[in-house]
Design a protein around this nucleic acid. Structure first.
Lengths: 334, 334
DNA sequence: CTGTTAGCGCATTCAG
DNA sequence: CTGAATGCGCTAACAG
């Protein structure tokens, strides 16, 4: 049988209340709050008893009393995406110091995350469908929610969103400036509104540069890791292959670079590649990835999530990150 | 205020017990177990009340009563490793149908997973240090544990392990058969005992082939994704670069292929590459990866974990998977 | 056959 | 330092 606070109390010869005080640290000389203060000898006896029995507080029981689980849930639709990895890493680092454990719900519809509501705060990456807002608003009445979305407004839940500004347009101009054959990789899972920001910049940019829009220069990829690679291969194996590729995520851009290298094409000599998201993998790969995105985003997001986890009752807000074009080696300036 | 079973009962005009019966499905005509059976009209009223209030059962309260959380925890030391992604995907698929939610504890020491024991079963990938067994055995008294380990024996916790046999030796022979310059990529985080199986095969294989062991043909990589890429670059940028690379994980082998392609080397023409783990990413990439590993491992592991989650009280056992050499395009047969 | 009462499980925390 | 109440849902035993 698993040891409970009661067995510890019995062994130490004290009440369960005392055990609770000792084990949750409200025992020391400073005795934060009124009234507490357990004799050092008792503290020792309790600690020994707990150790001897191998006692661990039952998290469920604790949660039922305190209303806090010290869990932070990340619902990430594609865990192999470097963007998701960055989120995970940043949150993991920030949470470690605060006694909060981040858990990842991977590759699942976020709707299931809403049912299983046992985290102090839940982060949802990418909900854009029209009907989603209502679902989220309803779920937000029962749990703290932070939603990454290009288009939504807070409704009980917090919203984290990019401020694209003209960054995507600049990015496309960056490519059309020296290239007439500019291909595009778009995600099949992004909603139309997200695509409006990312893909719309592509079509508008072509028009601005006086280039024709060509269906066959646009390839679609989906969640699957190899799907983006294959999409890029299709683009690059054409006789009149694009000499520049605009990808709507860093993930796809990185896959495109690998695909190009597999075909023995040089980056940026033979093909230039540009992504969106400013992930660390893109920053640190060789060649480094030219991208559109915010700076300091992941740490900022992590801090925001931890704040929400610790103050679950504050008002819902918006966390905005301005995007800009970040020029690196895969599509350099000159 | 969050709706509880009590508020639902009040709205529906019944007792909390009835609500519980209805919502946990013990209401229908079959009424598994004695006594139960709620009138259809009542069922409807309760369901409507629950819906109207947006009621969700409190998972903590439920867990405290039933002793089950319906959570399955995966402690994965490197989430970007395709091996970990395969584990996650397989478990996610298998768990979805059974009302169990898999959660990932990423990039953390598994010791923290043991403290936060709120899952029906916890999977730990890679614990090999001598002192670990004792820690795990102790933790296993409080929670169901499944440990992936080359070397450990069950001690209250289950063990999942490969049976390497001569597969790694065959793999090295496969390379030394046509190559005199065979490099090696080894993980800095694997324990010495794991390395004995994987790395020992390399040194023994060189000896068998009459080749000298060279320090400078062995490069080390660590957890970091780019680290393996850089290690491979170092190997491949030598004047007398290896013409074959034996990597101790698929992860490193894939990075090596990317590194080679970046240097415009052909796989397998200029460099042959071989990994360990038999991941789906290796299988499906271009060129497909020659590797050492089990077949059907991930689904087998997933089934094993779900079984443990559902029968937490069974005896601890061993799940073994025989490894074999799987020849594909990155290091073909002829 | 239908529904209720009452107690349980664990840790927390206020009032003494 | 302790007694006792508290939070939420489950379920055995019982009553209509």
């Amino acid at each position: 049988m698993r040891p409970t606070i009661k067995s510890v109390a019995a062994v130490a010869g004290v009440s369960t209340a005392t055990v609770s005080y000792v084990l949750s640290g409200r025992s020391g000389k400073d005795g934060s709050r009124s009234g507490s203060g357990v004799a050092p000898a008792t503290v020792l006896r309790v600690q020994e008893a707990a150790l001897a029995l191998g006692y661990r507080p039952n998290q469920s029981a604790r949660a039922i009393r305190t209303g806090r689980t010290n869990l932070l849930m990340l619902s990430l639709t594609m865990i192999s995406d470097p963007w998701a990895l960055d989120v995970s890493r940043a949150v993991g680092t920030a949470a470690a110091q605060r006694g909060i454990t981040p858990m990842i719900l991977a590759d699942t519809d976020w709707r299931v995350a809403l049912k299983r509501q046992n985290a102090d705060v839940t982060f949802i990456d990418g909900a854009e469908e029209p009907g989603d807002a209502e679902l989220l608003a309803q779920a937000a009445r029962l749990q703290r929610l932070v939603v990454f979305s290009d288009t939504m407004e807070p409704e009980g839940f917090d919203v984290v969103r990019p401020v694209a500004g003209s960054s995507c347009d600049q990015a496309v101009d960056h490519l059309t400036g020296r290239h007439h054959r500019v291909g595009c990789l778009i995600s099949s899972t992004h909603s139309t509104s997200t695509l409006d920001i990312r893909f719309g910049a592509y079509t508008r940019g072509l028009a601005r540069a006086g280039l024709d829009y060509r269906d066959d220069y646009v390839e679609t990829y989906d969640r699957d890791g190899l799907s983006a690679f294959d999409a890029a291969l299709r683009l690059l194996q054409r006789a009149d292959r694009p000499t520049a590729i605009y990808a709507t995520t860093d993930f796809a851009a990185i896959a495109a670079i690998h695909a190009a290298q597999r075909l023995q094409l040089r980056i940026p000599g033979d093909v230039e590649v540009l992504g969106i998201g400013n992930t660390t993998e893109g920053e640190r790969m060789t060649p480094s990835l030219t991208t559109v995105g915010p700076e300091g985003f992941f740490d900022g997001l992590a801090a925001f999530l931890l704040d929400r986890a610790e103050n679950p009752d504050g008002p819902a807000g918006i966390l905005e990150f301005p995007w800009k074009l970040i020029v690196r080696d895969s599509a350099p300036s000159v």
